[in-house]
Design a protein around this nucleic acid. Structure first.
Lengths: 214, 214
DNA sequence: TGTACATCAGTGAACGCGCGTTCACTGATGTAC
DNA sequence: TGTACATCAGTGAACGCGCGTTCACTGATGTAC
């Protein structure tokens, strides 16, 4: 009676699967908690509680608090902002694409506010501990965008006002700068400012030197 | 003999003066230590040591660590970046002024790296604790710059690509974004990028609608 | 000017709490036969 | 399929240390007469 013990048939999840699930829960919880309280301000108890687990679970999956933070940043950060690129309709003009990309980016910042705050905190951490910098997500993303800008300019027969790499760097900086200011002063920063600025920066295309193609 | 006790003639600094001096030392030390280790990562012992004093001196001058941080930010932050404006030669063209301002700003960031890191940390803090936001330095600085941009544009007879206030907001964002990325990845961000970007953004002036003045 | 007392900025030690880390333990999963 | 043992993810309690805060005290400055 009271068939509480019926481990037959259903093998249930394997140990490995359960561990992976726990790890995922911890990372999810860490993302929320760290972003809300800041990395230094959030304790492992906070993280474990938010995940419905105990601190021991953290130490069973990660070497230390720093390792947890590190893993979180490596695995979860910067993935989404890269995903913007394929969403932009490349058949539009460069200026239109700029507006679209700007809007997508601000939407992302709105949705993933926590992750953005984390990213800034991480940047400050790296600024203070340069030896912990890793092979750069930054350069990879930047070069990807630079390539797109370059290709667009060539196709349109327009001359870029500076090397595409520098332009891409500036775009990332503008995006993160606007987002940061917007997170701090939501009422003072129009959400479409980034898109409009991109439009201004890419307006060189509107008076191309020549249409000598074909 | 051994005239160690000669408090005559020289009255010496008053109690009030000494206290003000101590307070200044503490704020100086706090600026350095907080910027280097981060606010959460730096202890009051660190600050007191750097000032050549003890923690008690901190509590004699400030209510708490938070009060010290707050005072530091209120009294010492954002003063210098405002000081850039009068340094720019207003007889130059708008584009030249942009380049000059960009260079001055990056020089400032280089010299005052610690203060910039502190400012970013403060922004994150405010993003997480909006209720602690005060009457805004940001809007004041922005409006000042917006006024200058507007005046320049009118004088040159050029049309701004967007309201001057938004343009000013974007310039601050671009400056802080480039600086942040530069602090994190010094080798990947050219120091003159800000100046060049300002040049691009203000290049609308180079084809003014008319030169109907005089 | 000199004396006696009051004030109070800064000292140095102690307190107490939160938090990262450790560890003995448990019970479910995995393995050998 | 069943039994006995091994493994190990996660538990929960304990540890220890750093740090913000408190407090009794000191000695120089200030004040009253």
């Amino acid at each position: 009676m009271m068939g509480t013990v019926s481990p037959r048939a259903r093998t249930g999840p394997s140990r490995e699967e359960k561990k992976a699930e726990t790890r995922g829960k911890l990372l999810d919880a860490a993302a929320t908690v760290f972003a809300q309280k800041g990395i230094a301000g959030a304790s492992l108890d906070d993280v474990a509680d938010a995940a419905g687990l105990t601190k021991g679970a953290v130490y069973s999956n990660f070497d230390s608090k720093e390792d947890l933070v590190w893993t979180l940043l490596e695995e979860r950060l910067g993935q989404e902002s890269l995903a913007i690129i394929p969403q932009v309709d490349s058949s539009h003009t460069q200026e239109e694409q700029a507006l679209e990309a700007g809007e997508l980016f601000m939407n992302l910042a709105d949705r993933e506010r926590d992750m953005f705050l984390l990213e800034y905190e991480y940047m400050l951490y790296i600024a203070r501990h340069p030896e912990k910098r890793r092979k750069n997500n930054f350069t990879r993303r930047r070069d990807e965008v630079a390539g797109i800008i370059q290709a667009q300019a060539e196709e349109a027969g327009a001359q870029l006002p500076m090397p595409a790499t520098d332009l891409a760097t500036a775009l990332f900086a503008l995006g993160s700068g606007i987002t940061l200011e917007w997170l701090v002063n939501p009422d003072e920063v129009p959400v479409d400012l980034f898109g409009r600025m991109l439009g201004v920066i890419f307006s060189f295309e509107s008076q191309p030197a020549a249409s000598d193609k074909q």
